[in-house]
Design a binder for these strands. Sequence first.
RNA 1: GCGGACGUAGCUCAGUUGGCAGAGCACCUGGUUGUGGCCCAGGGGGUCGUGGGUUCAAUCCCCAUCGUUCGCC
Length: 391
Amino acid sequence: MHPITATRAAQTAGAPGDFRIEAEDGAARAGVLHTGHGPVPTPIFMPVGTVGSVKALAPDDLNALNARIILGNTYHLYLRPGDEIVARRGGLHRFAAWDKPILTDSGGYQAFSLSGLRKISEEGVLFRSHLDGSKHLFTPEKVLDIQRNLGSDIMMVLDECVPYGTDHDYTARSIRLTTRWALRSRAAFPAEMTRGGAAHNLLFAITQGGFFRDLRTASVEELAPHDFDGFAIGGLSVGEPKPEMYELLAHTAPQLPAGKPRYLMGVGTPLDIMAGIRCGVDMFDCVLPTRNARNGTLYTSLGKVNIKRREFAEDDGPLDPACSCYACRTFSRAYLRHLYVSGELLSFRLNSLHNLTHYLDLVTRARQHILAGTFEDLYAATAALYPDDAA
RNA sequence: GCGGACGUAGCUCAGUUGGCAGAGCACCUGGUUGUGGCCCAGGGGGUCGUGGGUUCAAUCCCCAUCGUUCGCC
């Protein structure tokens, strides 16, 4: 079939918001999520492009490595260049020349990561801009306005992400606030206006609950009955010991509505992602592959490679013999190390290209294994590759 | 040629009224989880230009010498 015809066929195979599960292997699922910009096979990893750019890469690169959906950030794009400027340019897809789906984070995480610059109230989050110090009130309604201006395919509700170590009392009040915000979001932007509108903006809710099983369950129970297009697990990987993260993940993921996509936010390492899939999670995003690429930590079929190490100074072999990315096909480890040590821009590009290729290949293989009923083999192989990361 | 200043870690330089030799950067090794290319943690490294002298003890004081540099003739 002609590529364009094939794309149209795939797009018409489901309406935006449809999530079809094709196979299950244990708790792991292989499916397809339909969006306003085409289908997304799951499980999927979503490269992070905070300000409308996956750092160091162009859309051509993302297509080459088989990226199917990328992330943008409400808070960052609202501050710069401004969501209305993006809207007047035809939305983020047109502005950034990316024609596949975009998921936008709500800014809830920035309330956590930039916690010195914000104040949380019933109304919303008051931010002090990290760029110029100006104040901005982000309400649940406002962040959806922004995300609609951006033309987001998958909008995230505003949530409160509490730091590791937050006590039960505060966390209990926090999940109720996050629930109220989610319901305000849905009420202000009903499904017929978002998913059913011209832009087909899906809306995902975010469950929280810190590191308390009862609160994780409560958060899911409060949100699950409502008409969201997907459900996320937020607030993990915020500094807790690994076993605790895996425990809460295994506790929470199976409770999320089975027929909707499940999204584990901000996670994680290759093994974290395999662990998530094994618990029934469908979608992941993480800055790790791109940030670590820029800092010389590369993920390969042989495990983690610190390309800055001196031992690679005269290593003429490819970074990863099993990888088909441009960097692995073309350059030696010695050259990649030289580029990194020299601070060359090409180092950011090649390393990012490689790490994202590795991540996308990994979830693609996960999908194939689920369809074949052999996902446990892939999980075991990944766990063996990262013995120190295992729970 | 005369006079002065300076020679301490790979680099730029502190410091010691004479008592186990310091910083920043660089280098090496980790870390990085809903992104500020940042940041964090740990580590290796010096016959204190060289040779003498004084002293219990000299990188420090004295002499000589080599080097760098500035000024003057």
